[in-house]
């Protein structure tokens, strides 16, 4: 992971919120972390990365943020299943969009979605973990990027 990679994901996250909601998300200062210290929120979705890179990309969001996104997508009810699905779709879109720069060898898995706050998170232990704090419509989320060249 280098600075250009981080900037790529900052741009993709901003674009996601701006395009789908008309409200751009604010991305805080990215920081390095590790699996033990990560703050996970109410819904989390993981995308496994393989091919020219290896690792995982997480999107984790508060219930309030997920519900707002679901309602803005046109749903009248923002129940648990739809919130979890929405978080999975955000993770999938951000990861898939990254292929514009990472290339077709940047292979992404289908999302694995976790509802509730897991005690621990599976991340490759030897890879750097970069966290992008997201604030959108006064609600919180994080994008967790754990990548290295394969």
């Amino acid at each position: 992971m280098n600075e250009q990679d981080i900037q790529l994901f900052v741009g993709l996250v901003t674009n996601y919120f701006k395009t789908t909601t008309g409200i751009g998300g604010q991305i805080g200062t990215p920081y390095l972390s590790n699996a033990r210290d990560l703050e996970l929120l109410d819904y989390s979705a993981a995308i496994g990365i393989s091919g020219n890179q290896k690792g995982v990309i997480y999107f984790t969001a508060s219930r309030a943020l997920a519900r707002k996104l679901v309602r803005l997508s046109g749903e009248s009810q923002a129940h648990d299943e739809l919130c979890a699905d929405m978080v999975g779709e955000v993770a999938n879109t951000i990861s898939g969009n990254a292929r514009e720069r990472m290339g077709a060898g940047f292979m992404i898995s289908v999302p694995l979605v976790i509802t509730g706050r897991p005690d621990n998170l599976r991340l490759p232990t030897r890879l750097p973990v970069v966290v992008l704090p997201v604030k959108w419509s006064e609600e919180r989320a994080f994008v967790v990027i754990c990548l290295a060249l394969n």
Binding site: S95, G96, N97, R99, E100, I108
Partner: peptide, 24 residues
Amino acid sequence: SALGDRHTAVEAVKQGADGFLLKP
């Protein structure tokens, strides 16, 4: 699809798709 690389869009058309819309 969310897959944002040119190769995927070209491949989709090669396989017979008539259009490609990038998510979001």
